[in-house]
Amino acid sequence: MAASTGDAPALFTPEGHGTPRVAAWLLLAIVLMVVDHRTGALDQLRSRVAALADPLYRIAATPARAARVARDAVGDRRDLMAENERLRQALLLAEARLGRYAAVAEQNARLRELLDVRERHRLEGRLAELIDIDLDPFRHRLVLGVGRDGGIEPGQAVIDGRGVMGQVIAAEARHATMLLLTDPGHAIPVTVLRSGLRAIAYGTGATDALRLPHIPFGADVRVGDALVSSGIGGRFPPGLPVGTIRELKPDDTGTFVEAIALPAAGLARSGEVLVLREERESLPEAAHGPAPDPGEATGHDVRSGRPREDASPPARTAATTAREAAREAAPAPVAPQRSAPR
């Protein structure tokens, strides 16, 4: 600590803040950053201190919350009616879709019985409110108001009503941090719904764009195609909407096509989200046989700042991944080859 300046006339005494001293502090900062970036040595410390941040987060969120409450209170009645109308229509649509899904689900169950599939994946969701604070406008992270006490674990997928938002990267007792799909350090394996083509969607740092590099020329993909999570890698359950292809262009090398997709989820900072937990449940007929391995208990290695955690599937045991891949393999990309999508 530079305690030396004291009350000497500061006009003439810049010492105590000399170059060696600043170099030492900078070096310390750099060492800390490198250790934090390359290793997990500081994770424990970080999470212990982060738990203390909770009250500050709540305080910092109050202005935004107050603004929202005020807006709701004085909001134009007509606006509210219009919103109500819109929500009612959305609900109707959703119910209609649900009705159709029920039939499909039943059919699916029957087919599974035929195939003698031992287990299925049940999605369990937990509603979590977002704390309305902004950690860094140039990094895409949100803070959830529920933490480990509420069953939130790092690695869990987060969705909203329209699609995948991202994943939990750190959980403290009473809050958790999530990384949005659009963070440059995020990647999610996706499937083109129409053709079954697989790709990985990387965040770009812009809230309205995901990047899908390395698509071969001649692959069956068009502007407007819907993308869903493929489930490969095991972090995100398969079949959740991720986005829509907005643009296709050759990449810099000219050997592949790069697609730009618009994320499906509303990536707003406030409101409520659903944190998913995938649970395996055995079908009653298949009580015999080995128990499903609890592979997912190992997956909690993602933390802030690590780029591309999700691109490789290190979290699961090889067996789990293989099984998932097999489960995924149904819509194989055997679409007719067409000329380069331009």
Partner: peptide, 30 residues
């Protein structure tokens, strides 16, 4: 008030910022 805001104090405040915003430890400090 340079007597208060030495480099060490700036560093400590930066660390607090790092813990709060979840940036790399040392980023705000630096």
């Amino acid at each position: 008030s340079p007597a208060r805001m030495g480099l060490g104090v700036a560093f400590a405040i930066g660390l607090a910022g790092d813990f709060l915003t979840g940036s790399l430890l040392g980023e705000h400090a630096l």
